[in-house]
Amino acid sequence: MSDRRLIEGRGLGAVRGERVLFRDVSISAVAGELILLRGANGSGKTTLLRQLAGLSEPQAGDVKRISAHHWIGHTNGLKAHETPRTHLQHWARVWGSDAEVGAVLERLGMTRPANVPCRMLSAGQKRRTALARLLLQPRDLWLLDEPFNALDTEGQSKLAEMIESHRAEGGAVIAALHGAAPVKASREVEL
């Protein structure tokens, strides 16, 4: 693990109505790290991740994004009429990536349903399709919200393998999880 810093959030805070979700949370990730955000439902894991991703303005503190990141939220970002293949082709075009979509689908075990409209896929297959976006373009930091949700055992091992290989290549992952983690974290942040 090198000490190359990829993201740095300092003194972050969030309030919902009159309820303080979290306050004064500082979190930073260096290359090779896997940081798990832990906490009960409604403790603010997703909010913190969204603040790190720049999707929500922090109500306190600031975030310094040093490297490019991928975002996988708890919704998959899929359109009902898209197939896994057309979805990935679309985002590859948007990002100007020349990744081989067929190979990406194969790595996630999605070759067979590659041409099936997303409205007909199972929750696990939809999740795999969303996770496949991580492989379309190399980015140092992955911000993942409950990434193992809906995945079967095989899907979980594939994702765990992807995370390990991303870390080995010098990337880092910050993931919100509330269940058991099939991967070994560098550290956990409790909210």
Partner: peptide, 16 residues
Amino acid sequence: QADLQDGALDLWLQDT
């Protein structure tokens, strides 16, 4: 509304 509900809006906000 559909983009907000299915998460596509997050991707557009992030990646464009």
